[in-house]
Amino acid sequence: MPDPSAVLNAVVAGVLLGGFYAAVALGIAIAFGMLDIPNLSHPAFVVMGAFATWVLNNTFGIDPVLAGLIMTGPFFILGVLLYRLYHTCFESRGEAPLQGLAFFFGILFITEVVLVLTAGADYRSVQADYIGVSVNLGSVTLPLRMVVPFVVSIGMLLALQQFLSRSFTGRAILAVSQDKLALQLMGVSPTRIKALAFGISIATAAVAGSLLIIIQPVEPSIGRDFIGRAFAAVVLGGMGSFWGMLIASIILGITESIVSDMWNPSWAPAIAFGFLLPTLAFRSGGLLGRKL
């Protein structure tokens, strides 16, 4: 019989971890879930965001979260440019499936190697007052290095949700995921809207990266560990749905945390797959949401 307080701690840790996964998966929910762009390289941009945060924090002593927010600007532009390239080379030629996937896989790989060549293959970490501090609530320990990312992630999710449902641009983005024709009737170019939305999805990677490096030291190839998790969260959450994705991320986080604590941490990366494969095979609508 496992100690109930240990189980409770594992569950709480899992919820916090899941909140962070949602920050990584958010960009994929936008790019893949809404725009149908299979951006496998998203986790590499998260790692790139983590390294940018490391530079800003180490050189100028900027708070990691603030550093992540500062980087959303350049990352947004990067995303728009990447989409333009993808659109010209694949989407408009109608060769999206095979070549597009390979393209993003190549980008993932190039980003990783460039990081190794410029920043080295070592683990990097950041400094902030809240890292290393814990709060105790009864028998539950809450490390702030997990709580801060959780709060920021949920905040980012809420802000984007508001943006999508309230602003004209946001509603145009929702429209492009459902009906291109309607958008053209509104006099908006779907390509421009998709570029914008993809820019936003890459911008979220900057924030997710800053959260990642708060949680743990980061090295260039670490991004790969998140591909399975993030795509599993998006597919499980029903593709475009933010809340479905958040719930799926938290379920994933809790399961990983319990397995790591009670059994063996080396199984943790396999858990996402354990969720993903049955979902693809038997319940292609995800936990809540539409058909694939």
């Binding site: 299979p38 496998l40 790969r224 399975g228 396999a270 996402a272 797959f273 993903l276």
Partner: peptide
């Protein structure tokens, strides 16, 4: 995506 995850698992 499933094959990518297969490699990890």
């Amino acid at each position: 995506i499933a094959t990518l995850a297969l490699a990890i698992v």
